[in-house]
């Protein structure tokens, strides 16, 4: 048996479900270790989501994820990256589950995201930009920046789950908002934005120029856009600017 055949068979056996019993006590140890390590990674990575859905439901979802999403990165820290998406499918009638899991995942990603400087209002003032420059200006988001649309008030639910399970479901938002996550200094932050502010920020953080976003907002909204932008700078939402 070649090394390649041996290793493919070994991996298949430890990752198989219980319909295929392990071939020896030793292989059972490897299978248990494989499942245990991945299960622990999800349980610690999604601690508050676990509290929200309950231990049994969480473990069923985790077992399904382990079978259907074998880890493929060199770091175990990224194993759970598709878990919020799977929860969205498994808990289709409870959208807060996937939204909560997304928030939990992104906060952890932001915590350890690569370092970058913070772009400040002073940096912009010192750049002496012309009106044409401003129109072409693009911004690089802060470490760990992520955004998604949410339908539930998970920002109210989040702190309630710090130590124990919460009892009542979060309120549905009157209209979909934007939940953002980023890191400032060493601390991950999150904030719920109304649809208009969220759309503008997501466009700017996604690579649209300042002029393009201003055009989308329209003349009537320019003053509001300016106020949002000043707030984003104060929150440290950008790490750099580019003139392209």
């Amino acid at each position: 048996m070649t090394l390649a055949i041996l290793q493919h068979a070994f991996l298949a056996e430890i990752a198989a479900d219980d319909a295929l019993p392990p071939s020896s006590a030793g292989m059972a140890i490897y299978r248990n270790a494989y499942r245990g390590r991945l299960s622990d990674a999800l349980a610690t990575g999604f601690e508050r989501t676990r509290r929200w859905v309950g231990e049994e439901a969480f473990e069923q979802a985790a077992a399904h994820y382990i079978l259907t999403h074998p880890p493929h990165r060199w770091t175990l820290d990224l194993f759970g990256e598709a878990f919020p998406g799977l929860l969205g499918t498994l808990f289709a009638d409870d959208p807060e589950v996937a939204e909560l899991a997304w928030l939990e995942w992104q906060l952890q990603q932001a915590f350890a995201a690569l370092d970058a400087p913070v772009l400040t209002a002073t940096d912009l003032a010192e750049a002496s930009l012309s009106e044409e420059d401003w129109a072409r200006l693009r911004f690089i988001p802060a470490p760990g920046f992520a955004a998604r649309q949410v339908d539930c008030d998970v920002v109210t639910l989040w702190p309630l789950l710090q130590d124990e399970a919460a009892s009542s479901a979060p309120a549905r938002l009157p209209e979909s908002g934007w939940l953002i996550v980023w890191r400032q200094d060493f601390s991950p932050h999150y904030r719920l934005l109304d649809p208009a502010e969220g759309a503008a920020l997501v466009a700017l953080a996604g690579g649209a120029s300042f002029g393009e976003v201003a055009a989308r907002v329209g003349a009537d909204g320019l003053q509001q856009f300016g106020a949002w932008f000043a707030g984003w700078l104060a929150e440290g939402l950008f790490s750099a600017m580019e003139l392209t």
């Binding site: 070649t2 070994f10 990752a15 880890p71």
Partner: peptide, 25 residues
């Protein structure tokens, strides 16, 4: 040890057969 193959990482320290082929790898 080896930890995975072909894009599947076990995140475990899996045993190597002590063969000339494995030694060469």
């Amino acid at each position: 040890c080896w930890t995975g193959l072909g894009g599947h990482n076990s995140h475990d320290l899996l045993p190597v057969p002590y063969t000339e082929e494995a030694l060469a790898r």
